[in-house]
Design a binder for these strands. Structure first.
Length: 549
RNA sequence: GCGCCAAUAGCUCAGCUGGAUAGAGCAACGGAUUUCUAAUCCGUAGGUCAGGGGUUCGAAUCCCUUUUGGCGUGCCA
């Protein structure tokens, strides 16, 4: 839409033999008085032609006026061009949207670019928490939108199933298991995992294996416990995510990377590039050469790799798999670590620009206005499951993507529960449900769109009707903007606005009026198209679109 | 100390990457229901866009600076 107008503007400039650069913009003005679209083309290019912006705009307006699609083209303010489209233009567009059905907004915009979206990637040492829930909603919505726009997105979860933290997990299970067999644990170590789920894991293991494990060597026993706990926790996380409507194409295991020797591969590449050195019995990476604030340890003096090495290896595999863009969705506590990761990628001779990092800010959980303090070690966490169970999948998904990724998210559980009727997600779903019941009424009144004559759309002359069509025309652009900026919250805002426009229209004008079947048909055509757009938007957000509420 | 993110209505947040008189929802107050669902709608009130400077036709948006808050700054992950 905007593209079409841009093209017309460019053509008019060529015709008038004016100099221009095409970084001008075509926008939808806030104030309807300023027309349906406006452009700053004359403002930007006036200097180039040594003209007064208004004078230049005037010439352009006269040239553009000749086109049939424009009802009028006006010059306003310091030299804006304001376009008002003709009604018939909008009606043509409405037909286009209607015929596109569930595909409106879909395109090959992404040109099949392969996009890896890595998100959640929570440690397999406990149930998923609310931060993971935010990441899950974010990553999955991005995936759905990019998929819809003709990218080839790929969802991946990186499982840190090796290293220190899983050893601690095994020891934590061991202690709880011993408790079940009568051992008194005076003081549960502070670094161990304290959550109730550890006790559950021990009990489940005990039910399966009994006291048998006590006769294993300590090493074998811990290994057994580690594998058991990892498997169980993975199942738990998988279940939570599925309940949330989030799937992954791949779960990448750190353990597997280690077994396949990718760590060594990455290390050897770094050594070949002469980016490693030994100091104090440890192996270091010269990340400061690539802009990191200091060098980092790769191999600790005890001979074990730091967590950094598997991360380098993991990113190496991302590059080896040939993605055009790789997006890491990280929590805010990881931003200090990205410079060293990017340094490693540069040292490996890879294109660092293909890696993009999105930081999601914290989720502050409130209960009745009071902040809930969460601590994994102390076992005080609010899990993703608890949130979903309390507020429902639909509301939870909406809440978690409703905000800009870079802003903190305050989530009040009590409020989300008690005020669920004022919840924006219900407002949107209600619009969808209302249209379904209008459809029912239309059926009873024998008003339908069989053999619909599109000439009837001429009956749609209300301002509200034009505004609704305009809003739907915007939809594909909204989606493209979301894909470019990686900001799915714009879809939540858009859909909320669209639903609001419908509610206002609905309460002001009757859709079905048996005395005026022609107008009724035209309006039915409009709102059924609208309903489809709402349904597409909800689907992209992973939210259900009910016919009844 | 250094680095990252933020600061917009009483509260929670948008503001389409520089456009015209800064917008929603909640909360407050006043109204609308013999009607296609009132989970809705209409109206009133609410602002020094944290402060100061700069860039230009034009700034909530970009740059500098000050203030405030969150996070990071391990041979933890």
């Amino acid at each position: 839409m905007k593209n079409k107008i841009s093209k017309d503007i460019t053509n008019s400039l060529k015709k008038l033999k004016l100099k221009y650069n095409d970084n001008f913009k075509v926008e939808i003005p806030n104030d309807p008085e300023h027309g349906d679209f406006s452009s700053n083309a004359a403002l930007i290019n006036a200097k180039l032609n040594k003209m007064n912006p208004r004078e230049m705009a005037q010439k352009m307006a006269e040239a553009l006026q000749k086109k049939r699609d424009y009802k009028k083209v006006e010059v306003a303010g310091p030299g804006f061009l304001n376009f008002t489209m003709s009604n018939s233009f909008y009606h043509k567009f409405l037909i286009k949207i209607h015929n596109a059905k569930e595909e409106w907004g879909s395109s090959n915009y992404g040109q099949k670019k392969k996009i890896l979206i890595e998100f959640v990637s929570a440690n397999p040492t406990g149930p998923l928490n609310v931060v993971s829930a935010r990441a899950a909603a974010y990553g999955d919505t991005m995936y759905r939108i990019m998929n819809f726009l003709g990218y080839e997105p790929f969802r991946e979860f990186y499982v840190n199933d090796a290293g220190n933290q899983v050893d601690i997990l095994a020891e934590s299970v061991e202690l709880r298991y011993r408790e079940l067999h009568g051992d008194k644990i005076d003081e549960f170590p502070s670094e161990a995992y304290h959550g109730e789920y550890v006790k559950d894991l021990a009990a489940k293991l005990n039910a399966a294996e009994g006291s048998k494990l006590l006769h294993y060597s300590e090493k074998d026993r811990l290994e057994k416990m580690k594998n058991f706990a990892l498997e169980e926790l993975h199942k738990m996380q998988l279940e939570s995510l599925q309940k949330f409507g989030v799937d992954f194409e791949n779960w990448m295991s750190e353990k597997k990377l280690r077994q396949e020797g990718i760590l060594e591969e990455a290390l050897s590449y770094l050594a070949e590039a002469k980016c490693t050195y030994e100091n104090d019995d440890a192996v270091w990476f010269c990340s400061s050469k690539f802009g990191d604030e200091k060098d980092r340890v790769l191999i600790k003096s005890d001979g074990n790799p730091t967590y950094f090495v598997p991360d380098i290896a993991y990113h190496l595999t991302k590059y080896q798999r040939g993605f055009d863009t790789m997006i890491d969705v990280l929590g805010p506590d990881h931003h200090g670590y990205v410079p060293r990761l990017k340094a490693a990628i540069q040292a490996l001779g890879l294109d660092v620009n293909k890696l993009e990092v999105v930081y999601l800010q914290h989720v502050n959980l409130f209960s009745g206005g009071k902040q809930v303090k969460m601590s994994k070690r102390a076992g005080k966490i609010v899990t993703m499951d608890e949130v979903i169970d309390e507020v429902g999948k639909d509301a939870a998904r909406y809440f978690f993507i409703d905000r800009r990724p870079s802003s903190h998210l305050n989530f009040d559980l009590e409020l989300a529960k008690s005020a669920s009727n004022e919840n924006p997600v219900y407002y949107i779903q209600y619009a969808h449900a209302r249209i379904s019941s209008i459809r029912k009424k239309a059926k009873k009144a024998k008003i339908n769109l069989k053999n619909f004559d599109t000439k009837l759309l001429r009956k749609l002359t209300l301002n509200e009707e034009t505004e609704l069509i305009k809003k739907m025309i915007e939809f594909p652009n909204i989606l493209q903007g979301i894909a470019n900026a990686r900001e799915p919250h714009r879809l939540a805002t858009y859909t909320h606005e669209l639903a609001g426009m419908f509610h206002k229209y609905y309460s002001k004008y009757p859709i079905i009026n048996e005395k005026n079947p022609e107008l009724s048909k035209a309006r039915l055509y409009l709102i059924l198209t609208l309903q489809t757009v709402i349904r597409i938007a909800l689907k992209l957000m992973g939210i259900s679109a009910p016919d009844k509420m």
